[in-house]
């Protein structure tokens, strides 16, 4: 097992929002990022769903990794177990929100179940294992990555909204211009790399 890196959890938190953003530096969760970013409201809904699920599952997966997977030597089953945990968490979360936060549940709509198969969620869980984070580091890494993903998709949706009224070369309409935009946002985010860096 790798040693716990000596980084302040707060630095991990800010880095995962800005310089180690799941979408803009690791390019994870791209499918929903591109396809659900054409409208700001729904994009933001998906971002919130990702934030909630990412925060909970990363912490949960850390506990399961440290108290079940590693002690039993089941590292090769990590992927399967993580996925099962994510799927079950989403199910439970859905019921919980439906009961106590119906407005949020409705606004998240179909995105909540879709989050189960979002690779950014899974990616965060795997990164926290590879980088050997402690529990506190993991929790802040999960929340930060969720916020980062929400920020990224909201930014793209807002920019796509601005682009929507403009004339584009025919081949660039839709996902193509979204990819180019993402690239430019990612470049802009590199500008932050002097502030915090964890990768």
């Amino acid at each position: 097992m790798t040693d716990v890196p000596n980084i302040s959890p707060l630095i991990i938190f800010f880095a995962s929002i800005i310089t180690s953003n799941m979408v803009l530096t690791n390019f994870l969760g791209m499918c929903s990022y591109i396809s659900v970013s054409s409208e700001y409201k729904t994009a933001s809904g998906l971002g919130q769903a990702a934030l909630i699920v990412m925060s909970i599952t990363t912490a949960l997966n850390w506990l399961i990794d440290h108290f079940l997977i590693v002690p039993l030597g089941l590292e090769y089953l990590r992927y399967v177990i993580f996925i099962i945990v994510i799927a079950a968490t989403v199910q439970l979360l859905e019921m919980f929100l439906d009961r106590y936060f119906p407005a949020l549940y409705i606004s998240l709509g179909i995105f909540l179940p879709l989050i189960t198969v979002n690779c950014a969620i899974f990616g965060v869980s795997l990164f926290m294992v590879i980088r050997g984070y402690s529990f506190i580091q993991t929790v802040l890494f999960g929340i930060g990555s969720g916020l980062g993903w929400w920020l990224a998709i909201s930014l793209l949706a807002a920019i796509r909204h601005k682009i929507a009224g403009n004339k584009l070369p025919p081949g660039l309409n839709g996902p193509a211009i979204a990819f180019i935009t993402t690239g430019i946002i990612a470049l802009a985010f590199i500008g932050f790399s002097g502030i915090v860096i964890i990768q």
Binding site: L68, I84, R99
Partner: peptide, 26 residues
Amino acid sequence: LISVAAVSLLTVFLTILIILGETVLA
């Protein structure tokens, strides 16, 4: 055997959690 048992137990545990959730939350 350990791995099969561990994964099965975890799945059963999560399933029970979901069923409980359904009876309580829903």
